[in-house]
Design a protein around this nucleic acid. Structure first.
Length: 551
RNA sequence: AGGGAUAUCGCCAAGCGGUAAGGCAGCGGGUUUUGAUCUCGCCAUUCCCAGGUUCGAAUCCUGGUAUCCCUGCCA
């Protein structure tokens, strides 16, 4: 882990609980787990949970398991179990022991269900889904007992075995816990423990036709793995009563405890797998790893580093408060990382030609530092010649004195090169500038003009004959509104979330590796996209530089 | 009288009875061959509201208010 991970923050409530437990000798060491369901790609909200669980294990010298909560075969897939493992490792974490699956415990889970039946605490219920809902009552009315609630233990045992043997059709019956139909916690009104699904499971194939529900599976899996602190999000607060009830009524080797924290919300994006897949399915984005997506894969392709994502998770904290974090926090994290770690280069995204009329003879090879503050990062060579590209926004025929770039008749510094003065321009029929003519001062390489002239502006450039044509993908927020409404996603999409520009990159960039970050000076941080090739470089803008001027 | 949670700066977030940390954003000054970085300074007499206890309350008590979650054979 890098420097960024070491920043000290006050201890959050879960760390306080753990330290108390350790001090009270409730545990001699801790064990956490990250329990994704393999039904989608991981996003930055998961990163918060991953950093929390693995981070806790690391700071208290405990362990953290990776366990797939794979109890719903119809929605899950092996491809997701693979991508999830990649993403966790990319973030810089390694689970203890082998990858676990709740499905590893199906046999034990089944036995615990039998135990519950034998204790008279579970029964096979033949009410259908609608009837079950009606019998459950409402938030303000108690529920009614299922007519199957008092079936004899021996009958329930036989019926449950028939369920397992595939003798009932899907939906014909379920196994339910016998708890309390009048409980103010809806999840305690005889919750379903097992349902029938003739679906092939990505791990257990066709071994089972009954699958355990989350509430039954999760607590028992935690107990089997001897998890000490089982962390989940706020919406499971009520479910904690069921978590505890199940563990109290069976004989398991440990009693884990569940603690809830608030999930991450980020402005101008979404954090729900369902809504994210809607974006993908409707092709509103390029796929799960579209650089505009808040998925780990999207952030990675965008140019975010694991250290920056970890830093972000550190900065946002862990509490039980509902929250919506501003994008600028995430951006500050990646800028902090890339500012010190990325080499500098020059690229012109919106090119206009400049001809240095008094530059004669062969092109020169200039040398420029890869990082202004870190000489150890070395130098790169920069060809300088008579014809250059600069950015259109860096030239004006006239401007007020706040404008610190090239103005007709005035001087500007070409970054890492000479001072030039604009003398005249060519325009096309519509009046657009097609070429800027300039004079350069050969005595200004690496030093200020000797006569004391002050040149306040500095602009970037590339040599036209040496530069590499390149495509630049400039990204912005995915949605126009800070908290998009799930029902009107299409209307709130930002039409300018991707702007493609064709320009030129300095020649050293032909050797850029996919994903490696560069700072294109005065433009922002960019990395090469996987879609390009040596003929067509494609760069994704990770984030712009902070810009703090007003014209 | 359903239940479970949460309310501290624009956004995160410390604070745990001794007189409001920090980060991001913002605003001013300095340095600068990136309008970046770096650097210096400013940025809650007040903690959802109202009472109460106390020498002393964001922290304790009482009563309100607001917001989120819970009636899948999803997780």
């Amino acid at each position: 882990m890098s420097e960024l991970d070491r920043e000290v923050r006050p201890k959050h409530f879960i760390q306080q609980i753990i330290e108390q437990d350790l001090q009270d000798q409730k545990h001699t060491s801790i064990r956490t787990r990250f329990p994704p369901e393999p039904n989608g790609y991981l996003h930055i909200g998961h990163a918060k949970s991953i950093c929390l669980n693995f981070g806790l294990a690391a700071t208290y010298h405990g362990e953290c398991h990776l366990r797939f909560d794979d109890t719903n075969p119809e929605k899950e897939d092996q491809s997701f179990v693979s991508s999830i493992q990649e993403d966790v490792q990319w973030l810089g974490f390694q689970w203890d022991g082998s990858v676990r699956y709740a499905s590893n415990y199906f046999e034990q889970l089944h036995q615990y269900a039998v135990d519950l039946i034998e204790k008279g605490l579970a029964y096979v219920c033949f009410l259908n889904a609608e009837e079950t809902r009606a019998y459950r009552g409402s938030l303000t009315e108690t529920g009614r007992s299922s007519p199957y609630r008092d079936t004899a233990v021996a009958d329930n045992l036989a019926l449950f075995e028939q369920m397992r043997q595939g003798q009932f059709s899907e939906g014909h019956c379920v196994l339910r816990a016998k708890i309390d139909m009048a409980s103010p916690f809806m999840c305690m009104r005889d919750p379903v423990l097992y349902r029938i699904r003739f679906a092939e499971h990505h791990q257990t194939k066709d071994t089972w036709c009954i699958y355990p529900m989350y509430d039954f599976t999760h607590c028992i899996s935690d107990a089997i793995e001897q998890i000490t602190h089982s962390l989940c999000s706020l919406e499971f607060q009520d479910n904690r009563r069921l978590y505890d009830w199940i563990l109290q009524n069976i004989s398991v080797p440990a009693t884990p405890h569940q603690y809830e924290f608030s999930r991450l919300n980020l402005e101008y994006t979404l954090m729900s797998k369902r809504k994210l897949s809607e974006l993908v399915d409707n092709q509103w984005v390029d796929g799960w790893d579209d650089p505009r997506m808040p998925t780990i894969a999207g952030l990675r392709r965008r140019g975010y580093t694991p250290a920056a994502v970890r830093d972000f998770c550190q900065r946002i904290g862990v509490t039980k408060q509902e929250n919506c974090v501003q994008m600028n926090v995430l951006e500050a994290c990646i800028r902090d990382d890339l500012n010190v770690n990325s080499p500098r280069a020059m690229a012109v995204l919106d090119p206009v030609k400049v001809v240095i009329e008094n530059f004669t003879g062969e092109p020169e090879s200039l040398s420029a530092p890869c990082h202004p503050d870190t000489p150890a990062m070395g130098q790169r060579s920069l060809p300088f010649a008579k014809t250059l590209w600069i950015d259109r926004a860096d030239f004006k025929e006239e401007a007020n004195k706040k404008y610190k770039r090239l103005v007709l008749g005035k001087e500007v510094r070409l970054r890492n090169a000479y001072v030039i003065q604009a003398t005249r321009v060519d325009k096309d029929a519509e009046g657009h500038i097609t070429c800027i003519y300039a004079q350069y001062d050969p005595a200004t390489l690496g030093c200020a003009p000797t006569d004391g002239r002050k040149v306040k502006g500095v602009i970037h450039w590339v040599s036209a004959e040496h530069a590499q044509p390149a495509e630049f993908r400039v990204y912005d927020r995915l949605f126009k509104v800070s908290q998009p409404d799930a029902n009107t996603l299409a209307e709130s999409l930002n039409p300018d979330s991707l702007i493609v520009k064709q320009g030129y990159a300095e020649p050293s960039l032909v050797n850029a590796a996919v994903g490696k970050a560069y700072q294109f000076e005065r433009e922002g941080y960019f990395c090469l996209d996987k879609q390009g090739n040596s003929d067509q470089l494609i760069f994704n803008r990770t984030v712009a530089l902070r810009e703090s001027w007003t014209d």
